[in-house]
């Protein structure tokens, strides 16, 4: 088996703020297989965006990645010089964001923003070669009349078209990894489906890996090969997508699944999660989920449970996993 494209080890990104140390990403281990999609799910504020920005080394100040390694084909990105890192950004790892409305620069034409990205990574190309390449990139993301769009400005495009332009820009230099941070959250449902289809097609064509960040389990179910569920800066559960949906182990995942309406399966609404993600400068003692967890017992408040293997290839950070045991105990009680 080929080694994973990207391995994240013990990654920790913090913000020093006046209200305390914000542990946005708090010791995360993950890997992204080649040509596959890793879905990262979790409620808003659990650290998904900061994780992806940490990989790109684009964490906004005062945030800082203080620990860990990000290994792209064995090379630790955190050790690269800024010049080397610039080659990685847009070259080997590209990124698209949630808000296509604001992610493109409103004062530059679509063509300029596209060619700018290409120019950085292939400085040898002249203006007309760049233009040809840009128009080809627009065609590839199925933008109608790409020649005309080339000269247009972002405000002249719809949200879906803008996200396509973002994708064209991201894929312009054939990256090995695409990080998509909530790429369809801001789009309406039909456009959302089109964009996801497009990403899947492009992945099949190029063999790139995708990290797909979302708070929408439906999107994960449709797209991901593997899934990591994040809670309060840590990975709560990690498994193949199939495993995760069929046999969730962490109470938080159960809660998330309980709140996702599913048509194909008659999953009873096990639990709904009450409360919200605790503020990251005031995580509770022990398991960070314990104030909201219906399965919480005294030991949960004592110690932070590590991620451990429940079944082969399926890890959860819960002392009571596998949950079947917990559930049967619960009903016995």
């Amino acid at each position: 088996m080929q080694p994973d494209l990207l391995r994240i080890e013990g990654l920790r990104t913090v913000f020093k703020t006046s209200s305390g140390l914000v542990r946005a990403v708090d010791g995360i281990d993950l890997s992204v297989p080649r040509g596959k999609t890793l879905g990262i799910v979790g409620e808003s504020g659990c650290g998904k965006s900061m994780l992806s920005l940490s990989i790109m080394r684009l964490v906004p100040p005062p945030g800082r990645t203080v620990e860990g390694r990000v290994l792209l084909e064995g090379r630790n990105l955190l050790d690269l010089s800024t010049a080397e890192m610039r080659q990685v950004r847009g070259g080997q790892i590209a990124m698209i964001f949630q808000e296509p409305m604001t992610s493109l620069n409103p004062v530059h034409s679509v063509g300029r923003q596209l060619t700018e990205a290409m120019h950085v990574h292939s400085p040898g190309l002249n203006a007309s070669a760049l233009k040809d390449k840009a128009i080809a990139a627009l065609k590839r993301v199925r933008i109608p009349s790409p020649e005309r769009r080339f000269d247009e400005y972002p405000h002249q495009l719809s949200g879906g078209m803008r996200q396509r332009v973002m994708i064209a820009m991201a894929l312009a230099c054939e990256p090995r990894l695409l990080i998509a941070d909530e790429p369809t959250t801001a789009l309406d449902v039909t456009v959302q489906a089109q964009i996801l289809d497009l990403l899947r097609e492009l992945q099949a064509d190029t063999g790139m890996s995708i990290i797909l960040i979302t708070h929408d389990l439906g999107v994960v179910a449709e797209m991901a090969d593997e899934v990591a569920v994040m809670y309060a800066g840590k990975v709560a559960e990690r498994a193949t997508a199939r495993e995760l949906f069929e046999d969730p182990q962490h109470p938080y995942t159960l809660g998330l699944l309980g709140s996702v309406p599913r048509l194909d399966e008659e999953r009873e609404r096990l639990l709904a999660i009450d409360g919200s993600v605790p503020p990251p400068f005031a995580f509770p003692e022990g398991c960070r989920f314990n104030p909201r967890c219906p399965f919480a017992i005294a030991p949960c408040r004592a110690e932070l449970p590590p991620l451990r293997e429940i079944t082969p290839g399926h890890q959860a950070a819960c002392i009571r996993a596998p949950v079947e045991n917990a559930l049967s105990l619960e009903s016995a009680a």
């Binding site: 684009l58 950004r89 070259g91 990124m95 964001f97 604001t102 493109l104 620069n105 990205a117 950085v120």
Partner: peptide
């Protein structure tokens, strides 16, 4: 602080290009 500046950095642009062509250029308005 705008998102398109983050996009510019994510493309691999140099800091001078980010500041001149994306931050200052927009700030001129």
């Amino acid at each position: 602080g705008a998102e398109h500046v983050r996009t510019a950095r994510a493309k691999g642009l140099s800091e001078s290009a980010v500041v001149l062509h994306h931050a200052l250029r927009n700030a001129l308005i």
